[in-house]
């Protein structure tokens, strides 16, 4: 039997056509835990996150959230997605709406909250992350870092049980990365349950309770960040980390590559 809280993934398989992308993923994330997924591009990190949000149908296996099987037949997909926030690499803000409406759209249209309540809560979140003065601007007036922070706030406004972050700093200029990572640190300290796919190894080491190394659709190695980063057991993990060090992405993730 699975745990009665948090996220539990069991035996997850997923192929795109004939190409297997996920080959038997088992992963458990307890409430308030932060798990970082590392691994080369194409190792299946993004697909795994999209499966948890039910944006991709799975081929086999089971995903449980808060004790409820969310991959069973006839599950109410929209109801599940309201509990799971996801932030994408390319922000995907709605360009035809000002920042504030980007944030309130979900609470008003999906959760049925009143406009006033949603607006107050959105303004409080924007205030907290230093974006209140941009509430009336359209997304393309904002820097990439600001857009990504708005995208995170948009997900937070749904008060999700679980937040999935899909390489949210990969599209940003290096000097804009720090603000976004600072925000995630803030959320981690506040106890937000998160699964983070990232290339920022320093950041992963800082923030994660657990690090999983994905390789060809499997979790090859997982454990506490100190152990994965200082004493990896698998040769492939060592090789991957060596390449990352060579690329100069091993620092504290505070924006200085």
């Amino acid at each position: 039997m699975t745990g009665d809280a948090g996220l539990v993934i069991e035996g997850l398989h997923k192929s795109f056509g004939r190409k297997p992308v996920l080959r038997g993923i088992d992963l458990a994330v307890e409430p308030h835990q932060v798990v970082c997924l590392i691994g080369a591009s194409g190792s299946g990190k993004s697909t795994l996150l999209r499966c948890v949000n039910l944006l991709e149908p799975i081929d086999a296996g089971r995903i449980t959230l808060g004790g409820e099987d969310i991959t069973r037949r006839g599950v109410r997909v929209n109801a599940v997605r309201r509990r799971v926030g996801i932030v994408f690499q390319s922000y995907n803000l709605f360009p035809h709406m000002p920042v504030l409406r980007n944030v309130t759209l979900g609470p008003v249209k999906a959760l049925g909250r009143s406009r006033a309540e949603a607006r107050d809560e959105a303004m409080a979140l924007l205030e907290r992350f230093g974006l209140a003065d941009r509430a009336r601007d359209y997304p393309d007036r904002l820097s990439g870092g600001q857009q990504q922070r708005v995208a995170i706030i948009r997900a937070l406004a749904m008060r999700p049980e679980l937040l999935l972050l899909d390489e949210i700093t990969s599209a940003l200029d290096p000097e804009l990365v720090a603000d976004v990572l600072e925000m995630i640190r803030d959320l981690a300290e506040g106890g937000m349950t998160m699964v983070i796919a990232t290339h920022e190894m320093g950041f992963a080491r800082d923030i994660a309770h657990r690090v999983c190394f994905l390789d060809e659709g499997q979790i090859l190695e997982e454990g506490a960040p100190e152990r994965i980063f200082t004493a990896p057991q698998e040769a492939r993990t060592r090789r991957f980390l060596q390449r990352v060090v060579d690329a100069g992405r091993m620092d504290g993730g505070r924006g200085g590559t």
């Binding site: 929209n78 995907n92 999906a110 749904m158």
Partner: peptide
């Protein structure tokens, strides 16, 4: 995808 991920139908 962004809209659906917020739980919009």
């Amino acid at each position: 995808a962004a809209a659906r991920s917020l739980g919009l139908g």
